[in-house]
Deep mutational scan, measured.
Amino acid sequence: VYKEIAITNGCINRMSKEELRAKLSEFKLETRGVKDVLKKRLKNYYKKQK
């Protein structure tokens, strides 16, 4: 499980701001904020899904 999260986090870290926004809107999450906030939001979402 932790390895999956680590791989997902690595992918998220390599995403551009536009990619992050697209992914967040896909999951109907808030898309406003600076890049670091968007990354954190997406990581938290994936963590809750596990």
Rank of each mutant, 00 (worst) to 15 (best):
residue 38 L to I: 05
residue 34 V to G: 09
residue 33 G to E: 02
residue 31 T to A: 09
residue 46 Y to C: 15
residue 9 N to D: 08
residue 46 Y to W: 08
residue 21 R to Q: 09
residue 41 R to Q: 00
residue 13 N to S: 08
residue 37 V to G: 04
residue 36 D to H: 14
residue 45 Y to I: 04
residue 42 L to D: 01
residue 11 C to Y: 13
residue 24 L to C: 13
residue 5 I to C: 14
residue 18 E to N: 15
residue 39 K to R: 11
residue 1 V to E: 14
residue 31 T to V: 11
residue 50 K to C: 08
residue 37 V to L: 05
residue 45 Y to P: 00
residue 25 S to R: 14
residue 15 M to I: 04
residue 21 R to C: 05
residue 4 E to I: 08
residue 45 Y to V: 02
residue 18 E to P: 14
residue 34 V to C: 12
residue 9 N to W: 07
residue 39 K to N: 04
residue 44 N to K: 15
residue 42 L to I: 04
residue 50 K to G: 07
residue 28 K to P: 00
residue 25 S to A: 15
residue 7 I to T: 12
residue 44 N to V: 07
residue 45 Y to G: 01
residue 50 K to A: 10
residue 48 K to H: 09
residue 14 R to N: 10
residue 3 K to M: 08
residue 20 L to R: 00
residue 5 I to Y: 13
residue 12 I to H: 02
residue 19 E to T: 09
residue 31 T to K: 13
residue 30 E to K: 06
residue 16 S to N: 13
residue 39 K to S: 05
residue 27 F to Q: 10
residue 7 I to D: 10
residue 20 L to H: 01
residue 8 T to L: 06
residue 32 R to S: 07
residue 50 K to I: 10
residue 29 L to H: 00
residue 24 L to W: 01
residue 31 T to G: 02
residue 21 R to H: 04
residue 48 K to E: 09
residue 49 Q to L: 12
residue 14 R to P: 01
residue 7 I to Y: 11
residue 8 T to W: 05
residue 11 C to N: 13
residue 44 N to F: 07
residue 32 R to W: 05
residue 22 A to L: 13
residue 43 K to F: 03
residue 11 C to W: 10
residue 33 G to T: 00
residue 11 C to V: 14
residue 1 V to D: 12
residue 39 K to D: 00
residue 38 L to P: 00
residue 33 G to L: 00
residue 20 L to S: 05
residue 36 D to F: 08
residue 3 K to N: 15
residue 11 C to I: 14
residue 43 K to N: 06
residue 21 R to A: 05
residue 19 E to I: 03
residue 15 M to S: 00
residue 7 I to P: 12
residue 28 K to E: 10
residue 12 I to S: 03
residue 17 K to P: 02
residue 17 K to L: 04
residue 43 K to Y: 03
residue 6 A to T: 14
residue 7 I to R: 10
residue 10 G to S: 11
residue 9 N to C: 13
residue 38 L to V: 03
residue 6 A to F: 12
residue 1 V to W: 11
residue 34 V to F: 08
residue 35 K to E: 04
residue 22 A to C: 13
residue 12 I to Y: 03
residue 24 L to D: 00
residue 3 K to G: 13
residue 15 M to R: 03
residue 42 L to W: 01
residue 36 D to R: 14
residue 30 E to F: 05
residue 49 Q to Y: 12
residue 41 R to L: 00
residue 3 K to I: 07
residue 12 I to L: 06
residue 36 D to I: 07
residue 21 R to K: 15
residue 29 L to S: 04
residue 28 K to L: 03
residue 40 K to H: 04
residue 38 L to A: 01
residue 21 R to M: 05
residue 23 K to L: 10
residue 24 L to A: 03
residue 27 F to H: 15
residue 38 L to C: 02
residue 41 R to P: 02
residue 45 Y to M: 04
residue 44 N to C: 09
residue 23 K to F: 04
residue 16 S to K: 14
residue 8 T to R: 10
residue 41 R to C: 00
residue 20 L to V: 04
residue 29 L to E: 03
residue 25 S to V: 09
residue 19 E to L: 05
residue 20 L to Q: 01
residue 19 E to K: 07
residue 8 T to K: 12
residue 42 L to S: 05
residue 28 K to R: 13
residue 20 L to D: 00
residue 33 G to K: 01
residue 1 V to F: 11
residue 15 M to W: 02
residue 30 E to V: 03
residue 49 Q to G: 07
residue 45 Y to E: 04
residue 18 E to G: 14
residue 6 A to S: 12
residue 27 F to E: 13
residue 5 I to N: 14
residue 14 R to I: 03
residue 4 E to A: 11
residue 36 D to V: 07
residue 22 A to P: 01
residue 6 A to I: 14
residue 8 T to P: 12
residue 49 Q to R: 09
residue 38 L to F: 04
residue 35 K to T: 07
residue 15 M to C: 02
residue 39 K to L: 04
residue 16 S to M: 00
residue 15 M to Q: 01
residue 49 Q to K: 12
residue 23 K to Q: 11
residue 44 N to D: 10
residue 14 R to L: 06
residue 13 N to M: 02
residue 9 N to T: 11
residue 48 K to Y: 08
residue 6 A to D: 09
residue 3 K to D: 09
residue 46 Y to L: 15
residue 26 E to L: 09
residue 45 Y to D: 01
residue 10 G to I: 07
residue 47 K to P: 01
residue 8 T to Y: 05
residue 39 K to E: 01
residue 16 S to C: 10
residue 40 K to S: 05
residue 36 D to E: 06
residue 35 K to M: 03
residue 48 K to N: 10
residue 50 K to R: 12
residue 46 Y to T: 11
residue 34 V to M: 04
residue 8 T to F: 05
residue 33 G to Q: 00
residue 10 G to T: 11
residue 6 A to C: 10
residue 36 D to P: 10
residue 27 F to A: 12
residue 25 S to H: 12
residue 16 S to H: 12
residue 1 V to K: 13
residue 5 I to A: 14
residue 4 E to W: 08
residue 19 E to D: 11
residue 49 Q to D: 07
residue 37 V to D: 08
residue 33 G to W: 02
residue 29 L to R: 04
residue 15 M to L: 07
residue 24 L to H: 03
residue 11 C to H: 13
residue 17 K to T: 06
residue 36 D to K: 15
residue 44 N to L: 10
residue 39 K to H: 00
residue 13 N to V: 03
residue 10 G to D: 10
residue 16 S to I: 02
residue 7 I to C: 10
residue 12 I to A: 02
residue 11 C to M: 15
residue 30 E to I: 03
residue 44 N to W: 06
residue 7 I to N: 10
residue 19 E to G: 06
residue 28 K to T: 07
residue 24 L to N: 00
residue 33 G to D: 04
residue 21 R to I: 08
residue 12 I to P: 03
residue 17 K to Y: 04
residue 17 K to S: 07
residue 19 E to F: 02
residue 20 L to N: 00
residue 34 V to P: 06
residue 21 R to L: 05
residue 19 E to H: 07
residue 38 L to N: 01
residue 14 R to V: 04
residue 37 V to Y: 02
residue 13 N to I: 04
residue 20 L to C: 01
residue 43 K to G: 02
residue 47 K to G: 06
residue 44 N to G: 10
residue 11 C to E: 15
residue 31 T to S: 12
residue 47 K to I: 06
residue 6 A to Q: 09
residue 15 M to E: 00
residue 25 S to G: 13
residue 35 K to Q: 03
residue 26 E to H: 08
residue 42 L to G: 02
residue 20 L to T: 01
residue 23 K to T: 10
residue 49 Q to F: 09
residue 44 N to E: 09
residue 8 T to A: 10
residue 3 K to Y: 08
residue 7 I to F: 09
residue 28 K to V: 02
residue 5 I to H: 14
residue 42 L to V: 03
residue 9 N to G: 08
residue 47 K to W: 04
residue 12 I to T: 05
residue 21 R to G: 02
residue 44 N to I: 09
residue 37 V to K: 15
residue 16 S to F: 03
residue 29 L to M: 09
residue 27 F to K: 12
residue 48 K to C: 07
residue 2 Y to P: 15
residue 38 L to G: 00
residue 48 K to T: 10
residue 49 Q to H: 11
residue 28 K to F: 06
residue 27 F to C: 15
residue 25 S to L: 12
residue 29 L to T: 01
residue 2 Y to L: 13
residue 35 K to I: 05
residue 48 K to Q: 09
residue 14 R to T: 08
residue 44 N to A: 14
residue 46 Y to G: 05
residue 41 R to F: 01
residue 37 V to E: 12
residue 38 L to K: 02
residue 5 I to F: 12
residue 35 K to C: 04
residue 40 K to R: 11
residue 2 Y to S: 15
residue 3 K to R: 11
residue 35 K to D: 03
residue 13 N to G: 08
residue 24 L to V: 02
residue 26 E to P: 00
residue 7 I to L: 14
residue 6 A to V: 14
residue 43 K to R: 06
residue 24 L to K: 00
residue 2 Y to I: 14
residue 22 A to Y: 09
residue 14 R to K: 15
residue 19 E to Q: 14
residue 25 S to C: 11
residue 35 K to G: 02
residue 9 N to V: 12
residue 26 E to I: 06
residue 19 E to C: 06
residue 16 S to W: 00
residue 29 L to G: 02
residue 3 K to L: 07
residue 10 G to E: 10
residue 19 E to V: 06
